[in-house]
Write a protein that binds this DNA or RNA. Structure first.
Lengths: 347, 347
DNA sequence: TTCTGATTGGACAATTTTCGTCCCACTTGT
DNA sequence: ACAAGTGGGACGAAAATTGTCCAATCAGAA
């Protein structure tokens, strides 16, 4: 932050909060437009009067326009949004926190987006957009990209910019899971990535949960073996990080599985592995899919997870993350992680 | 002004006024320290409560400290003051006004300082400081400097920084006037300038008002002739601009003189000359002193005058000002000059 | 076309905050 | 020792903010 801004904040300390609030409102409108006042209240948090006061101001400043269909951001508003982007990051201390988290988690890069996706759903789109942007920067160097499932991953696929198509790009479904919603499966996601970027994709249709014998048999199938080889050649892995219990429930895991996960103290989940708070593997779904060693061998790993509720999971997963891992998260998760780490140090 | 600040003001339009107010308060404290709350109210304008609210804030921000002797600006406060200096000028539109005035008045440079010296006496010190700063930059090139009298000139002498003494500098009293207060005479000012800068000075002890015969006689005196020659060699002229009527009164001018000044429609006064609104010479004190032609021949002319009340006088004097003239004034005068010019154009 | 749901703008009392104005105990410089 | 000037406290009045309605209107679906 430049010296002018520091001085400005010294003289106007109340500015910071106000600026953040207004920026946030303007940002939400830009994401959800057209949006009405009441809806905005729920999404942004705050009473109707408060939101109204600010939106009235934004309108007077010609940053938004109000129509009977709802509020929209004007081109001037979009410009303001863009111009203040880095500044808001600065005064929110996000830049500082990024450096802090980087050392706490021991990974190569952390990107933190404003707000908490637990509270404001629209933040997920932001995380998706940022992840998409980062991913696109590596397309030039790396072509084999493994992707997992999950709503976070789906958000990324939505934000990938279409345009310059690169037929050499190959998206590989990291797992064959069918336990989840079809829209959020790795296969669907891989297809979506390929469609947006103009690349190709490889899917793996195989149930997550198999008996030992069936598993052995399938592994000998050429189609499956081919995928396993592809995992070995993977350059980039993009995946979400889940809360262990939440994932177990969502996957309709069997009672004995849930028991193993519970008793083992599992905290996080990623590409079929369950980790405890120290990063030790507690359980892994016996599945055809990418293996932890293969992930750690990748040139770049993009881990994406936001929301205060994911803080513990991120902390757990990071113990096992390879150093070239890049984490894309949000303010809610970041603050919670730092809080947890502080408490841990006190003990 | 950079794009960031513009965007910031779009989102926080109320910031501008608040920032200016706090900056002003901080500035006044820095000039008058140690100063108490009540005194500050009078100088800065505003009720006790209002000032108190802001000073409490400034203390919390550790920009000032309050002791029983009064309030003082901390080193942090001084830094903030310095860092925001140009920014405040920008948001007050002073930079824009400087360019505007430069073309209206047809002179080479205009420097405008914040606030109105009619309302806030402390602004005079600012004008003095700025004039002193500018004057010091020409000391390297030019050595013969003519100075006039007046309270404005006295303010400059107070703000000249002592330190590096330049014995080659020569300050010449531009007039021999005794009509004014001794402290504000050209002779006294020249001496003060010389003392501060380490240079020498030449005084001219001769009454302002002389009969024609006496005047002729005196001009033949070697001491006087020497001064006249010096005026011819003058590189720099520093002078104030006065309101015609006010000056006539202060100088205890005779009734016939006052009548000439009145009937001629005199508006401004500078180094003994009275000008009407079109810059025509209405009257000149028959005095030993620098002549208008000599002023116009100088390499640099520093005209210093502040306050809304001086606006008409400045406008009048500028018609006669040589192009290398630099005007140092304040916001009050500047705004009034622009207002007057606009009205004139409408007719 | 009709209808439902959502939109903005208006209104108003309750509440909180700000404001103006005293006074007081105390320090400081004369 | 004293007078002038200092910051801090207090408190009722006034103004702004806030929470919560409602009405008129519009957009889009059925």
């Amino acid at each position: 932050m430049d010296a002018l801004s520091v001085a400005q904040q010294k003289l106007m300390p109340e500015m910071s909060e106000l600026l953040k609030k207004r920026y946030q409102i303007l940002q939400i409108i830009s994401l959800e437009q057209p949006i009405g006042r009441r809806t905005l209240c729920e999404v942004a948090g705050g009473t109707e009067r408060e939101i109204r006061k600010e939106t009235d101001l934004l309108r007077n400043q010609q940053l938004i326009e109000m129509k009977t269909a709802g509020m929209k951001v004007t081109s001037q508003g979009m410009e303001v949004l863009d111009r203040l982007k880095v500044f808001i990051r600065e005064i929110s201390g996000l830049t500082d926190m990024e450096v802090q988290l980087q050392s706490i988690l021991g990974i190569s890069k952390v990107v933190i987006l404003p707000q908490n996706s637990d509270e404001i759903p629209a933040v997920k789109s932001h995380i998706g957009k940022e992840a998409a942007k980062l991913l696109e920067t590596v397309f030039g160097r790396y072509k084999k990209i493994a992707v997992t499932g999950g709503s976070t991953m789906a958000a990324i696929s939505k934000e990938l910019s279409i345009g310059k198509s690169d037929r050499a790009l190959q998206f590989i479904a990291a797992r064959g899971g069918l336990g989840e919603d079809v829209l959020h499966q790795a296969n669907t996601i891989a297809a979506a990535f390929a469609e947006k970027t103009g690349g190709s994709f490889k899917t793996l249709y195989l149930p997550d949960h198999l008996s030992a014998e069936a598993f052995e048999m399938m592994m000998k199938e050429p189609v499956i073996k081919e995928m396993m080889d592809l995992y070995d050649q993977t350059d980039v892995v993009v995946h979400g990080i889940g809360d262990a219990e939440e994932m177990a429930v969502r996957r309709h895991s069997s009672l004995e599985e849930v028991e193993m996960i519970r008793s083992g103290g599992a905290v996080s989940e990623a590409f079929g592995y369950y980790f405890d708070k120290d990063g030790k593997i507690v359980y892994r779904i016996r599945t055809a899919g990418i293996q932890l060693e293969q992930v750690q061998k990748a040139k770049t790993v993009l881990a994406v997870a936001g929301g205060e509720s994911k803080a513990r999971a991120i902390l757990s997963y990071a113990k096992n993350a390879a150093s070239p891992t890049v984490l894309i998260t949000d303010e809610g998760a970041a603050r919670k992680i730092i809080e947890l780490t502080k408490k841990l140090e006190e003990l």
